[in-house]
């Protein structure tokens, strides 16, 4: 499978799973606008947090001159802008959105780790693998 085909299949597989879970919770075309709005709000929050983390994690290089400082300020302004856009789109930040999103982000990160480590455990931990040096010693 070439790269473009793989990306296509990856997209189709992801959309299929999204479709199945969406069907389970009763997503339909008539409610598409509110679904997209909610996705947009979460997307804007993710952007805001990503820019804040990128900006604050560059404090270690601020003494290197004008450019890191410009980048730091630009990222902070972007994050403030992202928060403002969220406020406009959602009509006021919901009370517990950050709490809910934090739990969900950690849940998603942990699910990624679970799948990744499962693959690693299966690929690396095969029973027929043997130590080449020990095998030489035995023969």
């Amino acid at each position: 499978m070439n790269r473009r085909n793989s990306l296509g299949v990856l997209f189709i597989a992801s959309m299929t799973v999204v479709g199945i879970i969406g069907w389970l919770v009763g997503w339909n075309l008539s409610g598409l606008e509110s679904i997209l709005e909610d996705v947009l709000i979460r997307s804007l929050m993710a952007m805001t947090v990503t820019w804040v983390i990128l900006a604050t994690s560059s404090t270690g290089i601020l003494h290197r001159g004008k450019d890191p400082r410009t980048l730091f300020i630009a990222l902070l302004l972007l994050s403030v802008g992202g928060l403002g856009l969220t406020e406009i789109v959602s009509g006021g930040l919901p009370e517990d959105i950050l709490a809910t999103l934090t739990v969900q982000w950690v849940g998603l990160a942990m699910s990624t780790l679970i799948v990744l480590f499962t693959v690693l455990a299966i690929i690396t931990g095969r029973e027929f693998e043997e130590d080449q040096l020990l095998a030489m010693d035995e023969s």
Binding site: V18, I21, G22, V25, I35, D38, V39, L40, I41, R42, S43, M45, A46, T100, L101, Q104, W105, G107, L108
Partner: peptide
Amino acid sequence: ALKTAIGT
């Protein structure tokens, strides 16, 4: 959770 996954 699904909206958060897509949005994130």
